[in-house]
Amino acid sequence: MLDILQTIIPIALFYSAPLILTALGGVFSERSGVVNIGLEGLMVMGAFVGIVFNLTFADVFGDATPWISILVAMVIGAIFSIIHAVASVTFRADQVVSGVAINFLALGLGVFLTKQWYGKGQTDMVSEPFYSTNIPFLSDIPIIGPIFFQKVYLTSYLAIIVAVIAWYVLYKTPFGLRLRSVGEHPMAADTNGINVYSMRYIAVIISGALGGLGGSVFALTIASNFSQSTIVGQGFMSLAAVIFGKWHPLGAMGAALFFGLAQSLSVISTSIPVLQEVPSIYLTIAPYVLTILALAGFIGRAEAPKANGQPYIKGSR
């Protein structure tokens, strides 16, 4: 049993880290009332920037390269998401449509530039990806140590820490209260002197930063290069985690961990006796079927933030 946990948990953490980060981005954006279907595109952008920066500057920064890469990907992701903010907040665009456009644009731009710079459809493999490590002291604790802290990726814990910070910011600070109020009832918030537009801009930019972070973490832990098929649906899974987690940072983290766990089951089924008997197709589709069952069964009606998806027009009632 201990062996099984020791195999499953690090892999589950490994798969869920990018989903957690991106889903948190989605929570920020949607809590402020801006639907973000563009998470997929933000991840693509993050993955692209993370890989290109890593390839270009691996000689300069050495071991610190992956960390600096994800920071740069965060910044570019934030800048990229301003397009979505301008379209959906200032231009009052349909937010779903704008998000779809973000997805197309990120992939087009990423692959276009890859071909431009590398002369082929995919980049080389990076020389400085993230490696798994044992966390000092914690990995020596009996039982818990081997399960949670040996051969893990630090990015997994980064994701969990960011989730807790996101919860604190959204639920325990005046800023978070304002952000949520803008998503529930923008007119009431406006009457109280909160600038609806700037709050929404900030929220979308945060989602861009976290989406970029998620994408680059995926690229530098799981994929190791960038091509058209690096990010295929992880952003949509993160979106699912946002809704599954009922637009709550810790809920979204839980949902993302669940997806990661479900994915890891099909990866490691060969080494676990009970699962060897199960035809692989059941394990492959398990995360998706379980999500549907969970939503239909015990999660039920998930209530989105009230003003989610509606542009705010000052002075209209």
Binding site: A87, R92, A101, F104, L105, G108, F112
Partner: peptide
């Protein structure tokens, strides 16, 4: 690179969305 067209399509969608 043929991906230029993907970028063009994305921009067209943006402009349609921002019809306001």
């Amino acid at each position: 690179p043929s991906e230029l067209v993907e970028i063009v399509i994305a921009l067209i969608i943006f402009f349609v969305a921002s019809s306001y």
